[in-house]
Design a protein around this nucleic acid. Sequence first.
DNA 1: TTGGCTAACTTAGAATGTTAAGTTAGTGGC
DNA 2: GCCACTAACTTAACATTCTAAGTTAGCCAA
Lengths: 145, 145
Amino acid sequence: MERNLSLDLHVLTARLDRAADRILRAEHDISYSRFLALTLVGELGASTQRALADGLGVTEPSVSRMTSVLAADGLLDVQPDPGGGNRRRLSLTDEGKRLVATIRREFEDRLAAVVAESGVPYAEYAKHTARLLETFDRLEREAGK
Amino acid sequence: MERNLSLDLHVLTARLDRAADRILRAEHDISYSRFLALTLVGELGASTQRALADGLGVTEPSVSRMTSVLAADGLLDVQPDPGGGNRRRLSLTDEGKRLVATIRREFEDRLAAVVAESGVPYAEYAKHTARLLETFDRLEREAGK
DNA sequence: TTGGCTAACTTAGAATGTTAAGTTAGTGGC
DNA sequence: GCCACTAACTTAACATTCTAAGTTAGCCAA
């Protein structure tokens, strides 16, 4: 029996995440998880904790704790949403914006270098990954969560 | 700014892992992590803890704890390796073999169904993922690690 | 207005991962 | 023989995520 897709995806992602985490901690003193959260808020429009959880693929309690820590660190601004409900309105502080801008592009470039080295066509692989994610999201929504 | 490959891989894998974990806990009372470990030992020839850690993409302490638990649960047999060193020789118990055989194929079939639904060519995507994993492993080995 | 419903968020506790540091067992130069 | 080195594993402390259960805030029907 050979390896299979679910296992390879699991292991590939685990290794990429670990490498990313080491680099970011060493060079910018922040974990990869927190960096991803800041990225979502700053560049992909996640403006509530619920939206951030969906965007990151994690649950609400994870986001709840992370936003507390990021706010305490002065990277994220968390305010009650004047628009109603029990929502929080999330936005980056100036320091948060600076950090994301510094790291973001440099970081994706490193992954692109690995992909180039492997001979896998980047654009196609990225497109397929995005499509799988969309499909999986849709199926989960249809299944009623 | 749009989403990017590293984020999409991270989120896709997080969701697949969580879905897998829920299914396995509900239907077979075992976590996805433990199932993957048993699969590696039973079908991919991981016969020491070091080999298992490499195959799973995790560190030795994680495997150390997991093998203790799996052994206590009667799914895994852990013996000092007569062949020397400080190695442990890992093998599945009959119950472990039964569990892996029961779950394995059913499980990959579900992922294949999602991939089919998405229109992404399964074989190609799996091949690319495997190649990225190999390349990343090689680069990390070369970097000294 | 009040009682039930739903959504967003928080808290608590378990599982699993990490790094750092220590233990155990062979290997090899002297 | 002995000391240094390396590899495999364990232990300890901490980070992050999950599920389950509770809280808070609007909405809506009677």
